[in-house]
Amino acid sequence: MSPSTDTGNDRFENLRQELRRGSLPLAVLAALRTEHYGYTLRKTLADHGMAIDEGTLYPLLRRLETQGLLVSQWREEDKRNKRFYRLSPDGKLILKQLLVEWKSIRASLEDIF
């Protein structure tokens, strides 16, 4: 592969990641309308085409919890302690607002395209 193609791929990959990074909090909040622990949440997101590595997901979950959008609870399941996350009442409200915003962005982009 030529260096210019490599640079082109790198540029695309950087922009793609930037684009996806921006939509990750929305995807996580939406997925946590149902309670999940980290690993199953990752699998759920991956099944819907939003694969996210653990190094990104867990810090994001902590940030959202600190902002009061999520609540978590350590519970035993299958003889192992797991931390379960779900949306807080504030999180539900914010998710609604973000979904409206998302639809508006999508409509605007489609209009531009």
Binding site: Y37, G38, Y39, Y58, R62, R80, N81, R83
Partner: peptide, 13 residues
Amino acid sequence: DIIAELSEDLRSQ
């Protein structure tokens, strides 16, 4: 706290 959660994820994988 972080290590317990990360450990659980890795062991599940």
